[in-house]
Design a protein around this nucleic acid. Structure first.
Length: 351
DNA sequence: CAATATTA
DNA sequence: TAATATTGG
């Protein structure tokens, strides 16, 4: 799965991350990046040749299937998910969004070609790379979550920024996404690998590795690297963000870290950089990560699942199997009572 | 990805 | 019963 935001992967010190069991999150509330989760479902839930799940009317349903079953499994493990959805992207993201659409279009063409030629594995690879979420799909997800009684929050802009805000405030234990942006936004804890579980095939090998949830602690990270969050944002800008996708030539994790340490003051570090593209304002990007738009007036409310509506949507509208859905609903109701609704749910504690 | 069916 | 393959929509 390609990382779309800032790629901090090689910068995270071993000390700041740990593999955890889903069970370790029992009782905790997490703010999940809705767009990121849906994207992963849509990319992953496909037939060997790349065809997604489709209902009799031709609507893609992979995202709904993934969201439905994965959310129930999380709740069954005692995790309390809240989904956060992106709002309007900032103007400076425009170029990256356009580029993404173009890239996906190219992959979509390659997908069709490979499929026609009967190259199954290649077709799937391109199908996944061409994955794009429509507004309709996001609306589907919001509707299903509402019926399921799972809270979701509309972010004014970046969903990861909103999730980070909620985590900083202490309303949620951690943010959940495959991307690292929420760390720049100041989320104290980031959970990765929450949408994907179990075994994953190693590229080009017939080997499978176990994917486990990964918890990254921002404070531990900053401490180990001996930098501040402000300096981390500068590193992000050097490596490349959604607002300056190419980053700065010659800067990888090592040199970027060295650079911010040498300059100490993040503002001075930024102003010493020469930007070739006049459309890119790195000081504005810095400000955006440091203080992004977020909505303080959200409410987190769990409701009893509306079985009728769920069956209506999944079975009648989208041809899901009646027995399967009902069986999953039973699990949802049962675990709802056990964890989500229990009054004495453990207090989220952090240190 | 997750649920179910098939097999060893 | 547990590991592996297939289907789901």
């Amino acid at each position: 799965m390609k990382i779309l935001g800032v790629n901090l992967k090689d910068l995270i010190p071993e000390k700041a991350k740990q593999e955890i069991d889903l069970k370790a999150l029992k009782g905790y509330t997490v703010a999940l990046d809705g767009y990121n989760m849906l994207y992963q479902f849509l990319a992953a839930i496909r037939q060997p040749d790349g065809t997604p799940l489709i209902d009799s009317k031709g609507n893609i349903t992979s995202h709904i299937s993934g969201l439905f079953y994965r959310t129930i499994n999380l709740i069954e493990e005692g995790v309390k998910p809240i989904y956060v959805f992106d709002g309007k992207p900032p103007e400076m993201k425009k170029k990256e969004i356009e580029d993404r659409i173009n890239r996906r279009q190219q992959y979509a063409e390659k997908y069709q070609k490979a499929k026609q030629e009967g190259k199954i594995e290649e077709a799937k690879k391109y199908a996944q790379a061409s994955t794009s979420l429509s507004n309709k799909m996001v609306e589907d997800a919001k509707q299903l979550l509402t019926y399921m009684g799972i809270p979701w929050v509309q972010a004014p802009a970046d969903g990861e920024a909103q999730a980070a805000y909620m985590a900083k405030k202490g309303d949620v234990y951690a943010t959940g996404s495959q991307d690292y942006d929420s760390l720049l936004f100041g989320s104290p804890k980031l959970l990765r690998n929450l949408a994907i579980t179990g075994k994953r095939k190693l590229p080009n090998k017939e080997e499978y590795i176990e994917i486990k949830p990964e918890l990254i602690n921002l404070n531990d990270m900053l401490k180990a690297l001996e930098i501040t969050r402000e300096q981390l944002i500068v590193i992000g800008i050097l490596l490349g963000t959604d607002f300056n996708p190419d980053g700065f030539k010659g800067y990888g994790p090592k040199t970027a870290l060295k650079y911010v340490k040498e300059h100490r003051d993040p503002i001075k570090a930024l102003s010493s950089l020469k930007v070739n593209d006049e459309d890119i304002d790195i000081m504005k990007i810095y400000e955006y990560f440091l203080n992004p738009p977020s909505n303080p007036n959200y409410k987190i409310e769990w409701r009893d699942p509306n079985e009728e509506k769920i069956i209506d949507m999944l079975v009648r509208e989208h041809d899901f199997n009646d027995d399967r859905v009902k069986k999953a609903l039973e699990r949802l109701k049962k675990s709802f009572k056990e964890s989500v609704k229990s009054k004495q749910a453990r207090l989220d504690n952090w240190f």
